[in-house]
Lab assay of single mutants.
Amino acid sequence: MATGGRRGAAAAPLLVAVAALLLGAAGHLYPGEVCPGMDIRNNLTRLHELENCSVIEGHLQILLMFKTRPEDFRDLSFPKLIMITDYLLLFRVYGLESLKDLFPNLTVIRGSRLFFNYALVIFEMVHLKELGLYNLMNITRGSVRIEKNNELCYLATIDWSRILDSVEDNYIVLNKDDNEECGDICPGTAKGKTNCPATVINGQFVERCWTHSHCQKVCPTICKSHGCTAEGLCCHSECLGNCSQPDDPTKCVACRNFYLDGRCVETCPPPYYHFQDWRCVNFSFCQDLHHKCKNSRRQGCHQYVIHNNKCIPECPSGYTMNSSNLLCTPCLGPCPKVCHLLEGEKTIDSVTSAQELRGCTVINGSLIINIRGGNNLAAELEANLGLIEEISGYLKIRRSYALVSLSFFRKLRLIRGETLEIGNYSFYALDNQNLRQLWDWSKHNLTITQGKLFFHYNPKLCLSEIHKMEEVSGTKGRQERNDIALKTNGDQASCENELLKFSYIRTSFDKI
């Protein structure tokens, strides 16, 4: 039985969820670079991206490699990797027998973001014989899940209580170790020597080791999670996991709180800001991140802002960003909400898709409305799209047979046209069989910064309504002859009103 693990408890099935942008060198404390989270699957090609990484700022997932063999891993080693800020997950990587050479110096898994409450997941690794993470000293947050690894031993010899604050939620089941077939031998045991430290858990006094050649490092209890030197002297209180010299914040392997210019500090002093819960960055760093993602459509890219001495992905609820200094300031009234469309555009074809934009005031991208039916549609669209004030790209209304009016965009005031449909149009209306009105132009103002209007096959939309939009939106004169079809717009509506004058002759039985 794995020490510190839980057996036999019912657990939810383990679901495996399925960018080499360097964020800056980590400095003297770390020998390499800070790398983003990685999802490495199918083959070993991307694994080489770990070569210079000291910190993975995010998670590391290595999974679904069915053609790899043990010899493929023999020359692979990433000794610079010290810390993973989120979680480490391995799933069905064939041929991998140990992690001792792959990650010989991995010391800390912070667990800032977890995989279903777990910071370390080893699942269905069919050839893994031992973990071998002999320098792993601290899992700051989260638990361990090690399950269905039929060859995995050296679990009962690990004292997880020396690595985690609590072992109650560890789930370590259905491994070879369960069948008591392992016969784990710690260093020196074969020669009758006791080389590794022994600890007591559940009444068992057991030597602690990761492999037959690597003991588990056990520091004096007084050192807590700070770690200790090879001689057993406690590291500085700002260290986490390990250090090369005692009581020196510049000799830590990793930091308990924050890293700044080669030393570990309790908090980031001005003019620095907390970033990702582990390091200090200056304003320029946060500003660069903001600008890199301002026009990016890459998933996970955030326009970072500053709030409460932190550089964070977005302002919290009730705050909006001051564009001059990136500071989050309290909103006066309802907060603006910028919604970034991942692929640059979004099609609204149902109430469900409209709900995804609920509360958005600025759309960074283009909207395509293609709704053919739905219950209580006008009210639903207004509830979900009615706060949109600005669209950076274009607005396209296409084959939306259920629409009679666009009044559900009740606050839309600006279409920038930074991206144009077919390279020309910022407003595009095609084949809307029941569209009769755009907006009530006596109450609604709309500016279209650039781009043209396109109207074709809107049989109940009168040309007068379209011409009014040209005047109000500032697009009059931009359109070419064929942009607004004269014969297919309003051709099934009563669009022309003329005053009919009647004269009559009164007659009676005795007068003409």
Rank of each mutant, 00 (worst) to 15 (best):
H28Q: 09
L29E: 11
G32S: 02
E33K: 10
E33H: 09
V34E: 09
P36N: 04
R41V: 05
T45K: 11
L50I: 06
C53W: 00
V55S: 02
I56Y: 00
Q61I: 14
L64R: 07
M65G: 06
P70W: 14
D75V: 15
L76A: 15
P79K: 03
P79M: 03
K80A: 09
K80D: 01
I82T: 06
M83A: 03
M83C: 09
M83D: 02
T85W: 01
L90H: 00
Y94Q: 15
S98Q: 02
L99V: 08
L99F: 10
P104G: 02
N105E: 06
V108C: 07
G111A: 02
S112W: 08
N117V: 09
N117L: 06
Y118Q: 07
A119D: 00
L120R: 01
K129S: 09
K129P: 01
K129W: 02
K129I: 07
Y134H: 01
L136R: 01
L136F: 03
I139E: 01
I139D: 01
I139F: 03
T140M: 09
R141M: 08
R145D: 03
I146N: 01
E147S: 14
N149A: 12
L155F: 08
D159I: 11
R162Q: 14
R162I: 08
R162D: 07
L164R: 08
E168S: 15
D169V: 07
V173T: 02
E180S: 13
E180D: 05
C182Y: 02
G183M: 06
G183I: 07
D184Y: 09
D184F: 15
D184H: 08
I185G: 14
I185P: 14
I185V: 14
G192I: 01
K193I: 03
N195I: 11
P197Q: 14
A198M: 05
T199N: 12
V200L: 04
I201E: 13
N202D: 09
G203W: 05
F205A: 05
E207M: 14
C209K: 13
H212D: 14
H214A: 14
K217F: 14
C219S: 03
P220C: 04
S225D: 07
H226K: 04
C228W: 01
C228T: 03
T229F: 07
T229Q: 07
E231K: 06
L233S: 13
L233M: 08
C234K: 04
C234N: 02
C234Q: 02
S237I: 12
G241K: 06
Q245P: 01
P246F: 11
D248G: 02
P249I: 04
T250I: 05
T250Y: 06
T250W: 09
C255V: 00
N257K: 04
N257M: 03
F258V: 07
R263P: 02
C264D: 00
P270M: 04
P271N: 04
Y272H: 04
Q276R: 08
Q276M: 05
D277Y: 11
R279F: 11
R279W: 05
V281M: 03
C286A: 11
Q287R: 14
L289C: 07
K292S: 04
C293D: 03
S296E: 15
R297Q: 10
R298H: 03
R298L: 09
R298V: 10
G300W: 09
C301Q: 06
Q303E: 15
V305W: 04
N308L: 13
N308E: 14
N308I: 08
N308G: 07
K310Y: 05
E314C: 04
N322K: 03
L327I: 12
T329H: 06
C331N: 13
C331M: 06
C331L: 04
P334V: 15
C335T: 06
P336Q: 04
